[in-house]
Design a protein around this nucleic acid. Sequence first.
DNA 1: TATTGACTTAAAGTAAACTCTAAGTGATAT
DNA 2: ATATCACTTAGAGTTTACTTTAAGTCAATA
Lengths: 122, 122
Amino acid sequence: MQISEVAQKFGLTTDTLRYYEREGLIGPIAKGKNGIRNYTEDDIKRIQFVRCMRAAGLEINFLKRYIKLFDEGDKTIKERREILVEQRKILKDKIDAMQEAYDRLNVKIDLYDKNILDKSLM
Amino acid sequence: MQISEVAQKFGLTTDTLRYYEREGLIGPIAKGKNGIRNYTEDDIKRIQFVRCMRAAGLEINFLKRYIKLFDEGDKTIKERREILVEQRKILKDKIDAMQEAYDRLNVKIDLYDKNILDKSLM
DNA sequence: TATTGACTTAAAGTAAACTCTAAGTGATAT
DNA sequence: ATATCACTTAGAGTTTACTTTAAGTCAATA
């Protein structure tokens, strides 16, 4: 699969895909003799994982660290589990904060709908 | 209330509070004759609102726009409602993406706990 | 053959949201 | 009185995650 197809598939730009590769989040992607990247099914799976985590706001640096540990093999299993748990906590807290704001927006929109706005911003 | 107390109360720095004020998200905060800011209860409420929205990832620019419309009075009610609905949608999509990543992390951590990791990253 | 389009690289540029620096004022504690 | 501390300003610097630019290669089509 060529870079533009992959980009389209995930709603990324080709620039972003090359950037992820430069940063070591994916690949290195094998290239044909013309120097053009050819993405394998495994590459695609990796991108999907990275996309899911990035869409959730996990940092590039975390992903780099995790992937590096992964490549170091079984001796890093314990550490990998720990950083996953740490990220899960961060994610949970963010979801909670967003849920709170979401609820608050709902209440506010409701006030707009019922024409019972007060003078305060919120 | 002085700036450092307010900063402490919300877990912000004084720089951030002054930055928010510069950007028009809060205040202008009244100052004593020594030039020092004195935050009122209304100021605090506004900061709480901004904090909640920022913690959820809503952009400074959106908040600026909303607050500007608010200050323009009743004639902007319709537009204000619209942008709230728009932000609620954005927030909902983000929560969903984060929930997906959260679930995925849970599954992965479970595999680590059960010692049934495979070779794939995820 | 010429141009079009997709690809390549390294490196500079951008946007958002702070964060820090430098230089200064004024009240209070030693 | 002198030092310390909290505050003030304008403006420069930082971080993260891309995004754009410049310069070029290669294959296919008009």
